[in-house]
C-alpha cells in the first residue's frame, strides 16, 4: 500500500465488515437490560451447566492435545503416501456441520452400537452423559490443536532437531527439549483455541448428549422456554470466556489473530 489514499480504500471496506461483526454485540448488550443476570447465574440449572462445561471442555482439550500434538509433529516431519488423506481427515470436522458430526458419533458410539453397548454394560455410557459431551467436544475441537501445532512444528528448523540427535539425545528427548519448546507458542495457541471451541460446542453435543446440559445446550433450552432474556446470563459467561481466550491467544504470538 503505497499511499494513504490507497490505505483508506481498504480501511473503509474493512470497516463495513467490522461494523457488522460489532453490531450484534451492541444489540445484545443494549437489548437485554431487563434480564435478571444475577438471579439466573444463581439458579442450580445454570450453575450445573457452567460446571459441566468447565469439566468437560478441559478434558476434551487435554485429550485433543495429548493425541493431537504428536499427530501434528508427525505431519510436520513425515512424508508418506496418503498424507493428503490424513490431512483431510484432520480438517473434516472443521468443515462438517456439527450436527452431522454428532449424528456420526451417535452411529459409532450410541447405546445400540457394539462400542456404545459394551461401554454402557460396564457403567460408562458414551451418550447422554458427560463422556458423550467430551466425545462431541473432542471431535469438533481437536483439528484446532493439530492444525495450529503443525504450523508451529513446520516452522522449526529441522537442523535444530538433527543437532540434538547428534549430541546423543533420542527422538523423544529431542521432541520434548527442542521441538516442543521451539513451537510452544503455536502449540499453546492451538490448545487455547481448542478449549474455546470445546466450551462453545453445541451441534454435535445436542446429538450425543442433550443431557446433562452444558452451557450451550442450556442456552438453547432456556431460549425455547423463556425467550432471549433467559439466555443472557450464560451468554455473558461464554462471552467472558471467549474474550479471555482471544487475549490469551494474542499474548502467545505467532497465531492466527488480527495482531501483527
Amino acid at each position: 500500500m503505497r499511499t494513504p489514499r490507497e490505505r483508506h480504500v481498504f480501511a473503509v471496506l474493512g470497516a463495513v465488515l467490522l461494523a457488522y461483526l460489532l453490531y450484534p454485540f451492541f444489540a445484545f448488550f443494549s437489548g437485554t437490560r431487563g434480564a435478571d443476570v444475577t438471579g439466573d447465574l444463581r439458579s442450580p440449572e445454570t450453575q450445573e451447566a457452567v460446571v459441566n462445561s468447565l469439566v468437560t471442555a478441559p478434558v476434551a482439550t487435554a485429550i485433543a492435545a495429548v493425541f493431537g500434538v504428536p499427530l501434528a509433529y508427525f505431519l510436520a516431519r513425515a512424508e508418506f503416501r496418503g498424507k493428503g488423506v490424513v490431512e483431510a481427515v484432520v480438517i473434516l470436522p472443521l468443515v462438517l456441520p456439527p450436527v452431522v458430526g454428532g449424528s456420526m458419533l451417535l452411529m459409532g458410539f450410541g447405546r445400540f452400537t457394539t462400542v456404545g453397548g459394551a461401554a454402557e454394560a460396564v457403567g460408562v455410557p458414551l451418550t447422554d452423559s458427560l463422556v458423550g459431551v467430551v466425545l462431541a467436544q473432542t471431535f469438533v475441537s481437536a483439528p484446532f490443536v493439530v492444525i495450529t501445532s503443525r504450523a508451529g512444528f513446520s516452522s522449526v528448523d529441522e537442523h535444530l532437531e538433527q543437532a540434538s540427535r547428534t549430541m546423543g539425545h533420542g527422538p523423544v528427548a529431542t521432541f520434548w527439549n527442542v521441538s516442543l519448546p521451539s513451537a510452544r507458542s503455536a502449540v499453546a495457541a492451538g490448545v487455547v483455541l481448542t478449549f474455546a471451541r470445546a466450551v462453545g460446542e453445541f451441534g454435535a453435543t445436542m446429538m450425543t448428549a442433550y443431557n446433562p446440559r452444558t452451557m450451550p445446550t442450556r442456552i438453547w433450552v432456556d431460549f425455547i422456554a423463556g425467550g432471549i432474556d433467559g439466555v443472557v446470563a450464560l451468554s455473558l459467561v461464554l462471552i467472558v470466556i471467549s474474550t479471555t481466550v482471544i487475549v490469551a491467544v494474542q499474548r502467545l504470538e505467532k497465531v492466527p489473530t488480527v495482531r501483527d
Partner: peptide, 20 residues
C-alpha cells in the same frame, strides 16, 4: 546406527542453536 549413537558433532550452515 542412529545419530545419537555415533558421537559426532555437527555445525550447520544456518544457526542451529536452540532459541529457548
Amino acid at each position: 546406527t542412529k545419530p545419537e549413537e555415533r558421537n559426532v558433532g555437527i555445525v550447520f550452515q544456518s544457526s542451529s542453536l536452540f532459541p529457548r
